[in-house]
């Protein structure tokens, strides 16, 4: 296997961090400590991890309502994320964004976006900046979106723009089989969404999105192409979300148990553990020590969130604009 030891450790740490963050976040949500709706991404750890393994802080990603995994894979701080979901002043966005709008521009994270498909052209714009400045080799744009967004017009506009302008963009379609409750077999006109890439003159690759090694390899090729100035690539990562569309969504109403069982057998973390121990790339002891560290990190994140102050009331009016000559409070 052509992955360094450090990278393997990073991959496992990142996937386990995503898994445990989502589980911990759900616990906190059901305890009433989250202030709103959350969309867990456990089960989908491989795509963000395998892709972001090739990125630096100078690369940009766009994300979705199901964005915690993308944030973590791009290096965001889990305590600031947990505090954000709890609506606290110390949250990543000061408590004003919430679960669906976590961003960290210092990490190249353009922000999670709750309009399905709306972040896609932002990643294209980030790639346009890179091309404009002649820094494609060190700054690519990756747009994460799902099978639901594959039906949005703005994706198709963005694919065409990226292709005709030859921009360093990766279209990373996480096909988890469901847009809310609607199955992809009902709503998407093709078995492989990646097949649409051909119509836009870019490579389209179908990847097992439960296998982080497969994602890592496919993403490596796509990102190398982008950095070399060879334009965009479309990756379709076939994956699965273990939980419902949002925290209180009961998947039993629209998914069959054998299907859920099938994907549990393909669990990306178990697959990784099996592979690296079998090939003697990492020890069981090392894997456990990574897990233990993450368990502590989650306890710390929850404690940080719970103990953090609420935002000041004045922040209601702040940051609507950089400057505005006469801020307008609500009329009374």
């Amino acid at each position: 296997m052509d992955i360094s030891k450090e990278k393997l450790e990073w991959i496992y740490t990142t996937m386990y961090r995503i898994r445990r963050f989502e589980e911990t976040m759900l616990e906190q949500t059901f305890k009433g400590n989250s202030m709103g709706v959350t969309h867990p991404s456990d089960g989908q750890e491989a795509p963000p991890t395998g892709i972001c393994a090739h990125l630096t802080d100078k690369d940009w990603i766009g994300s979705t309502h199901r964005g915690h995994g993308h944030c973590i894979a791009k290096g965001l701080d889990t305590s600031a994320m947990m505090a954000e979901i709890m609506g606290k002043a110390t949250g990543q966005c000061g408590g004003k964004g919430g679960s669906m709008h976590i961003a960290d521009f210092s990490k190249g994270m353009l922000g999670a976006n709750a309009i399905v498909g709306a972040s896609i052209p932002l990643a294209v714009g980030a790639a346009l900046t890179a091309k404009y400045k002649g820094i494609e080799n060190e700054s690519v744009g990756v747009s994460f979106f799902g099978d639901g967004a594959s039906s949005q017009g703005v994706l198709h506009e963005s694919m065409n723009l990226a292709a005709v302008w030859k921009l360093p963009v990766i279209f990373a379609c996480e096909n988890n089989g469901y847009a809310e409750a609607t199955p992809a077999w009902y709503a998407v006109s093709t078995d492989d969404i990646a097949s649409r890439a051909e119509g836009y003159g870019m490579p389209g690759v179908v990847v097992d999105g439960m296998d982080v090694f497969a994602v890592y390899d496919a993403a490596g090729e796509a990102i190398a192409r982008a950095r070399a100035g060879e334009g965009p690539t479309f990756l379709e990562l076939k994956t699965y979300r273990y939980h419902g569309h949002f925290h209180a969504d009961d998947t039993k109403k629209y998914r069959k148990p054998d299907e859920e069982e099938f994907y549990q057998q393909k669990d990306p973390l178990k697959h990784f553990e099996k592979t690296v121990t079998k090939q003697k790339l990492m020890t069981a002891k090392k894997l456990k020590s990574i897990r233990d560290d993450i368990e502590q990190e989650m306890l710390d994140a929850v404690e940080f969130g719970l103990n953090s102050p609420m935002p000041d009331a004045s922040s209601l009016y702040e940051d609507v604009y950089v400057n505005y000559s006469n801020p307008i409070p609500g009329l009374r």
Binding site: L110, P121, V124, A126
Partner: peptide, 26 residues
């Protein structure tokens, strides 16, 4: 043509791309 960039008829796409470029320094 890099600074006077003709766009396809894709208002949502190129306005979105313009926003993305504004978020990243242009």
């Amino acid at each position: 043509p890099e600074r006077i960039r003709d766009a396809p008829i894709s208002e949502a796409g190129f306005v979105g791309a313009a926003i993305g470029s504004a978020l990243t320094g242009l």
